[in-house]
Design a protein around this nucleic acid. Structure first.
Ligand SMILES: [Mn+2]
Ligand SMILES: [Mn+2]
Ligand SMILES: [Zn+2]
Ligand SMILES: [Zn+2]
Lengths: 151, 151
DNA sequence: CATACAATGACATTCACTTTCAAGCAGACA
DNA sequence: TGTCTGCTTGAAAGTGAATGTCATTGTATG
């Protein structure tokens, strides 16, 4: 268990205490699986991973845990309009997404200057910006290479 | 019925002919309601408006019609991650959204330079961009003014 | 017209997600 | 350590947007 992970788990424990909530085996297992993945994921992926080792864990519990992580500031909800809710680790402020239309891979990146400019445009329209999301859809280089090979 | 609307209806009629599909009273009524609104909307809003004058119109028919309009290039699907599919008139290439967290209003705008820059960043990561969506959430000036009045 | 087949609308179904509820468990306090 | 409160769990049922089914109706074309 690396340093970052230890810190997050501590942060979660503190969050629970402050809110009068309880630490449970399930929450610990789900948080471990989430942090160990180290990339954005959806609930079903986590659920299947967890069921492999802990067949008694409940579907609803995974949903509830991820929502809880989000409210604790540990996870970030990602909604890309495909009907699934994804979650990413909340460290940093990544909210720019490259979504491959071929393989579905989601790559996150950050670009501060574009955000500042974009927010400026919004302000000029009398809009107070609270959050910003940029979503690019296309073909990732891996899929592009594969397509070339088949032609 | 203004010039733009007449043109769109003609375009739709042509689309139907080319595909071997049929013009129906319902499709005409739904297209009228959609174009008359002249702002992005979700199916239920259209459905309620239509039910006022035409109580026999079906729920599924409105869904089917809007999907058809989209495939005809008349409507644009908008998905802002709240679980509802919105539709806007497809004229122009607006895909930048200001969403008010207070009143839910969706304002669309376009900003070509930001898009070109953003696409360049993506390309530099080996990603071939096919479409781009920018979503800013915050408070619109109307809601901001109201908040000020109450304080 | 007649005929072929697309479209409609009531209804059922899907799918991601949430809620319910009885049983279980965590943690505070004595 | 034991007790007690009430948070948590998991199975099952429910929710809500959207889509599929299918008998019936409507449309366009010859
Ligand atoms: Mn960013
Ligand atoms: Mn849904
Ligand atoms: Zn790909
Ligand atoms: Zn507003």
């Amino acid at each position: 268990m690396n340093q970052t992970k230890r810190k997050v788990k501590e942060q979660f424990h503190l969050f629970l205490s402050n809110k009068g909530l309880k630490g449970t085996l399930q929450r610990s297992l789900i948080l471990d699986a989430f942090l160990d993945l180290d990339r954005s994921t959806h609930i079903d992926e986590l659920y299947l991973i967890l069921r492999g080792k802990h067949p008694n864990i409940g579907h609803a519990t995974v949903y509830r845990a991820l929502r809880l992580f989000a409210s604790a500031g540990i996870a970030r909800e990602i909604n890309l309009g495909d009907g699934l809710t994804r979650y990413g680790v909340a460290g940093g402020r990544r909210h720019d997404y490259l979504v491959c239309n071929d393989c579905g891979t989601v790559t996150e990146f950050e670009n501060g200057s574009i955000e500042r400019y974009q927010a400026e445009v919004a302000r000029s329209m009398g809009f107070t910006v609270q959050s910003l999301k940029i979503e690019l859809r296309g073909v990732c280089n891996r899929c592009m290479a594969q397509a070339g090979r088949h032609s």
